[in-house]
Design a protein around this nucleic acid. Structure first.
Length: 857
RNA sequence: GCCCGGGUGGUGAAAUCGGUAGACACAACAGACUUAAAAUCUGUCGGACUUAAAAAGGUCCAUGCCGGUUCGAGUCCGGCCCCGGGCACCA
């Protein structure tokens, strides 16, 4: 029974509609050629325990987009799942004597409950968790395919190592050089590590950013900087042989300044460069070089990357020759040369590079000026206070003297190529992606180590390599996989006789998140990571929504992985290059000027919010308080305001329903109880139409169409806050309508539109009111209203009248008023007139229906 | 140091193309309803000055600061200050 006095109780209506949506599976996505598809995706959560405000905001944005697109006629795919592998689960297992799987499962079911309670329109049949063998099975398969193609390799590399915790730490887990858990200093330890060869895709990752027009510019910029392409040349400097001649061995360098080649006076190698030790071998420099390499290796990596420490080096005892001039140059090992950038060796030009300048000063190495700022302005190596690193005019450079250094750059590279001592080269800052983790709770790397055959991939038929469950978590002695005999030992699939030792490293969890969006397309497919047909239908993701913190990491990895899968043929001829067509990066949720965190004690728990106000209020406020890409300042009073607004809509709509009901009861008392009254019947509509005054009806229609237009346009460009304020204005307008007019047909239509427009934001309230209004159908799958331009036409507009650009009055005038009439009206106005006295009119600017500006002197 | 964002009332914000700055909210204040409170509803709400018995006006200032373009600038251009983010020994 409809009770007009019933107050707004979200706790009662919200779970009811959540259940209806779920039972009727209306958010289930099926491939359908009739409607255009729309893949709406939010970054899936790590199952840390319960959802936080950042999730609420992220998923509300995604849900409003999904609901809006669905009502606009798109076939929407809107999935959710869990990024379920990772260290917190393992740490919890160690602390609380549970199993990471149990801990993770618990958290996922809690979070599932919370997400459902928020009313998000997910296709729950597609839910996935990356820790399940049916997911990571396919990740292992891709790993093997990459291994075959040489896109995975193993090498020794330095990692952050915490001795008390006996484990590797990710960079972000090292805070000021100390372990986040035990606060001890983190050291650098060389370890055999697995790498994905992302550098092989550096050029494509850079070039294809042209296709990312739907991404925020700053994310593209961050990725471009991260990849860090430099144009330059490689040059080979022959080593000096026994009798001062050039030997057939050489040191290869990368330089972005081939124009300074004639000014090279020494050579710098990274301390770790294999040649450094080799050149010093058997000389007096052998020991100093060895000590120096050890000292550099010990240096904290963070310090090495951030501090401008003093440039130091040790002479290797060897000399090399400038390939163009034959000049004899000492070869040093230097602490500022990076082993893994370029070739790990640098041609040193002290006059034109600040680092080389400082180094040369310290070790009294000669300087050679080869570029002058201008013809007049010349440099003297003896008086220079710093290197001259800009472009200028070439000197002391043989045939290039007198030309500009920019021109010489090209000429010198050509000369190097002619003489076969160098060539044009691109260098990248991007490093290969180290994916090894010495942890249990991750995807096992499907490799066996055989004493006879060496590294042997696990045969595809034996996949998945399942994580053993009979494992004890002590936190001591490294990964528990290393102590698990049944996991560790396996017969060699190649020689059949050797007992192999299974790889105990697991994969970085960023690998799982690099392809989950593809798995969503066919989450139950058991012939491979995904069904190519499903991927061809749904991909690319039309709208991706997540935090800016993944600007480089996840978003770069996912782009890389997509390209790898393409090249491995997984898309079966599809041409998917880029996974995410459009990207929206939402801001943080902050309170009292700081990001919400337990330590700051400023956390707002979504559960509390839902309990007190309901999901619709939580959704509405998180969209109303700020535009999505900005930080959102949480304000409890603002939440109250959102709740009050929903209460006003509730009372308004139900007031109108009650009035309509009363009217019908008057006309035919017997039909008012059942659903029959809703349709009203011809007679009723006639009566209602009679009640409508022509002018009022037009005003109402104009408001209606204006509101539909604005809300639609704002939703298209993700201006949720202004879309909501438009609905508020519309609702404020409707609330002013006299109660005696409630029964009119135009009011009835206006109120229905209010409910529809509000539905993406507050779907439960809207669904409940929709049922009261129509008695049938689900609003969630109703079509979005359209607006009629002709209904927007007005007869009168406000004309702003300015004198010399200052507003003096506004006039209400007929649309399309002629300039002469506008001038006449304006100059007749007393407020305008007084500014025209004693003045000559110089110019009049008239913009019809908007503004009249009289310029006087 | 370099590269991006951003700076608008007491607060969150709006102003889509250069055309009435502050929509919509929050807070505050006043009032109505009530025995009272809550809830709800109504009104006021950038600043200074000013006219007036009051209702209601008027003038000037105001979008970080200084300048420019323009009939007209929150919006465009130049310089500067502050805040946030990214990069930073990458040869």
């Amino acid at each position: 029974m409809f009770d007009p006095e019933q107050p707004y109780h979200p706790k009662e209506i919200e779970p009811k509609w959540q259940q209806v949506w779920e039972e009727k599976k209306i958010f289930q996505a099926l491939e359908d050629g009739q409607r255009p598809k729309f893949y709406c995706l939010e970054m899936f959560p790590y199952p840390s325990g319960k959802i936080h405000m950042g999730h609420v905001r992220n998923y509300t944005i995604g849900d409003v987009i999904a609901r809006f697109k669905r009502m606009r006629g798109f076939n929407v795919l809107h999935p959710i799942g869990y990024d379920a592998f990772g260290m917190p689960a393992e740490n919890a297992a160690i602390e609380h004597k549970t199993h990471p799987a149990a801990w993770t499962d618990d958290n996922m079911s809690t979070m599932n409950r919370q997400l459902k309670r928020m009313g998000f329109s997910y296709d729950w049949d597609r839910e996935l968790a990356t820790c399940r063998p049916e997911y990571y099975h396919w990740e292992q398969l891709v790993f093997l395919k990459m291994f075959e193609k040489g896109l995975v390799y193993k090498k020794k590399s330095f990692v952050n190592w915490c001795t008390p915790c006996d484990t590797v730490l990710a960079n972000e887990q090292v805070i000021d050089g100390r372990c986040w858990r035990c606060d001890r200093e983190v050291s650098q330890k060389p370890l055999e590590q697995w790498f994905f060869k992302i550098t092989a895709y550096a050029d494509q990752l850079l070039a294809d950013m042209k296709q990312l027009s739907g991404w925020p510019e700053r994310v593209v910029t961050m990725q471009r900087e991260w990849i860090g392409e430099s144009q330059g040349a490689t040059v080979r400097f022959p080593l000096e042989g026994k009798n001062g001649e050039a030997s057939d061995r050489c040191i290869e360098v990368f330089t972005t300044r081939p124009d300074t080649l004639y000014g090279t006076t020494f050579m710098s190698l990274a301390a770790e460069h294999p040649m450094a030790q080799e050149l010093a071998r058997g000389t007096a420099q052998e020991l100093p070089i060895k000590r120096f390499a050890e000292q550099v290796a010990k240096m904290d990596r963070n310090q090495r990357l951030t501090d401008a420490y003093e440039k130091e080096g040790v002479f290797t005892g060897a000399y090399c020759l400038n390939p163009l001039t034959g000049r004899r140059m000492p070869v040093y090992a230097a602490n500022f040369v990076l082993a893994d950038y370029g070739t790990g060796a640098v041609m040193a030009v002290p006059a034109h590079d600040q680092r080389d300048f400082e180094f040369a000063k310290k070790y009294q190495i000669p300087m050679e000026v080869v570029i002058q700022p201008s013809m007049q302005d010349t440099l003297d190596p003896l008086t220079m206070k710093e290197a001259f690193a800009e472009s200028g005019i070439m000197v002391n450079s043989a045939a290039f003297n007198g030309t500009s250094s920019e021109v010489a750059k090209v000429g010198i590279v050509r000369l190097l190529e002619e003489r076969k001592v160098g060539q044009k080269t691109l260098a990248y800052k991007l490093r290969d992606w180290g994916i090894s983790r010495q942890r249990y709770w991750g995807t096992p790397i499907p490799i066996l180590h055989c004493p006879n055959c060496g590294m042997v991939p696990v045969p595809e038929a034996q996949l998945p390599v399942v994580l053993p469950t009979d494992v004890e978590f002590t936190g001591q002695g490294g990964s528990p996989l290393k102590r698990n005999q049944s996991f560790l030992e396996a017969p060699c699939p190649k020689c059949k006789v050797g007992t192999t030792r299974r790889e105990t490293d697991t994969m970085d969890t960023f690998v799982e998140s690099s392809w989950y969006f593809l798995r969503y397309c066919s989450p139950h497919y058991d012939q491979g990571p995904f069904d190519p047909k499903a991927v061809a239908y749904w991909m690319p993701v039309d709208q991706y929504i997540g935090g800016i913190e993944h600007a480089v990491l996840h978003l770069l990895y996912a782009r890389f992985f997509t390209k790898v899968l393409r090249d491995l043929g997984f898309f079966k001829g599809g041409d998917l290059n880029e996974p995410f067509q459009n990207l929206l990066t939402q801001g943080m949720v902050i309170k009292d000027g700081a990001k919400m965190s337990k330590s700051k004690g400023n956390v707002v728990d979504p559960n509390y919010l839902i309990e007190k106000y309901g999901a619709d209020t939580a959704r509405l406020f998180s969209l109303f308080a700020a535009p999505p890409e900005k930080d959102l300042d949480w304000n409890d009073q603002g939440v109250e305001g959102a709740y009050r607004f929903l209460g006003r809509v509730w009372r308004l709509v139900r007031g109108v329903i009650a009035e309509r009901k009363r009217l019908i009861h008057q006309r035919s008392p017997e039909s008012s109880d059942g659903a029959a009254w809703l349709s009203g019947g011809e007679g009723l509509i006639e009566v209602q139409q009679e009640l409508d005054g022509e002018q009022e009806k037009r005003d109402l229609e104009r408001w209606l169409h204006k509101t539909i237009k604005k809300v639609t346009e704002d939703l298209e460009r993700f201006h949720f806050n202004t879309a909501i304020s438009t609905i508020m204005e519309y609702s404020n307008f409707l609330a002013k309508i006299e109660k005696s007019h409630y029964a009119r047909e135009s009011v009835w239509q206006a109120v229905r539109a209010l409910v529809v427009l509000l539905s993406p934001f507050a779907p439960h309230l809207a669904e409940e009111l929709w049922q009261d209004l129509t008695g049938t159908g689900l609003l969630a799958i109703e079509p979005w209203p359209t607006y009629d331009e002709s209904a927007l036409v007005v007869e009168e507009v406000t004309l702003v009248v300015q004198v010399n650009g200052v507003v003096r009055t506004t006039l209400s005038v007929a649309v399309g008023l002629a300039q002469s009439d506008a001038e006449a009206l304006a100059t007749a106005d007393a407020r305008v007139k007084k500014y025209l006295e004693q003045k000559a009119v110089v110019k009049i600017i008239y913009i019809p229906n908007r503004l009249l500006n009289i310029v006087v002197k």
